[in-house]
Design a protein around this nucleic acid. Structure first.
Lengths: 173, 173
DNA sequence: TTTTTACGTCAGCTATATTGACATAATTCT
DNA sequence: AGAATTATGTCAATATAGCTGACGTAAAAA
C-alpha cells in the first residue's frame, strides 16, 4: 500500500485511538473478571451482581427504576431477581404510597455479598487512584462521564444523586 | 444506623469509588452499544466484532494468538469464526513456516466492516479527547492501562507492539 | 518412529438476553 | 362507578455467547 499525502489517515484508524479502544476493552474485561470469580462461588452471575449493586446503592429502588438503569426487559430481570428473592438476598415490599410498586431492599446476607463485591472492585480503583493526584482523579471521572451517551447522562446524574442521598442517609451522624 | 467515629467508612463503600465503578459500567455499556447497533444490520454480534477488530489490527494473527487475546475457548471462537469465514469476511491461510497454523486475514468486505466499526467507536473517543489537553490524554491512557490486571499487561503491551508494527507496515511511505 | 502441537468438530449444557402474549391488582381518569 | 392506564408477574419460544469433554487430523519436533 502506498501512502498518499493528500489522504491523511482518518482518526478512526489512528493508532492511538485504536489503542484506547483496546485498552478500554481489556480494562473492562479485567474489571468485571474480579467480580465474576467471586460470584462463581455463590452460583451467581453478572446479572445478579448488577441487581445487588444497584439495590445496595439505592435501597427501596422500584422495579421500573431498576429496569431503567439496567436497560433490559422485565422478563430478563425477573428470572434473575426471582432467584435472589428465593434465596433471600433481596426482598421486595409494596410501595407505601403506590401499592402496585415493588420496592427492593437487600437482606443482611444480600448486603454482605454486595459489600464483598464492591470491595473487590473498589480495590482495583483504589490501587489506580492511589498513584493519582486530586486533579487526575477529577479528570478520570470527567473522562468516564463524557464516554457516556449524552442523552443518558441526565439519568446517570439522577441515579448518582439518589445514590448519594441514600448514602448520606445511612451514614449521617 | 449510628455512625461511629472509630469505624471509618471503608474505601469499598466510599461514595466516590462507588461512583467510579458505576461510571465505568455505564461508559462501557454505551461504548459497546454503538457497535452493537451497527452489527445488528449485518446479523453479527459482539463476538464477531472482536474477531474483526483484532484481525484488522494484526493481519496474519494465528488462532492461538487470537484465543490468547480473547480469552475464550477454541470451541467458542470457532462457532463465530466459521460464520465469518463462510460469509467471506475473514480468510485463513496456512502459516508459511508452520503449516499447521491458520493465519487470519480480513477480506475487503471484512476490512470495510471492521473500519466502519472502528469509526463509530473512535468517534466517541475523539469527541472525548477533543476537550482534553495532551497531558490529560496521556493520563487517560495511563488510567486505563493501570485498570488492567498487572499480570495481563505484558500481553497487552505485546499485542499493542504487534498492532503498531502492522500499522506502520501498512502505512509507511 | 513416537510424541506433541495447532487446529477442527461434535454433542450437550448454562447464562443472559430478546419478543410477544396474557394476567392481575392498584391507581387514575372521566 | 366504570373505564383506562400503570406496575408488575409470568409463560413460551428464540438467539447469542460462552462452557466442558471427547475425539480426529495433519504437521512438526523429539
Amino acid at each position: 500500500m502506498i501512502a498518499r499525502e493528500d489522504e491523511p489517515i482518518p482518526a478512526s484508524q489512528d493508532s492511538d485511538v485504536l489503542e484506547l479502544i483496546e485498552l478500554f476493552f481489556f480494562a473492562y474485561r479485567d474489571f468485571v473478571g474480579d467480580a465474576d470469580r467471586l460470584l462463581e462461588n455463590y452460583g451467581f452471575g453478572r446479572a445478579h451482581h448488577r441487581i445487588l449493586h444497584f439495590v445496595q446503592r439505592r435501597p427501596g429502588l422500584s422495579i421500573a427504576a431498576l429496569l431503567d438503569i439496567l436497560q433490559i426487559t422485565k422478563q430478563s430481570l425477573n428470572r434473575v431477581l426471582k432467584q435472589l428473592l428465593d434465596e433471600k438476598l433481596v426482598e421486595s415490599r409494596a410501595g407505601p404510597s403506590d401499592r402496585r410498586q415493588r420496592l427492593l431492599y437487600l437482606t443482611h446476607t444480600g448486603s454482605e455479598l454486595a459489600k464483598e463485591l464492591a470491595r473487590i472492585q473498589a480495590a482495583r480503583f483504589e490501587r489506580v487512584l492511589d498513584n493519582m493526584s486530586w486533579k487526575e482523579k477529577e479528570n478520570a471521572i470527567e473522562f468516564l462521564y463524557s464516554m457516556i451517551d449524552e442523552d443518558q447522562r441526565p439519568q446517570v446524574r439522577q441515579h448518582l444523586r439518589h445514590a448519594k442521598a441514600s448514602f448520606i442517609r445511612n451514614n449521617e451522624t
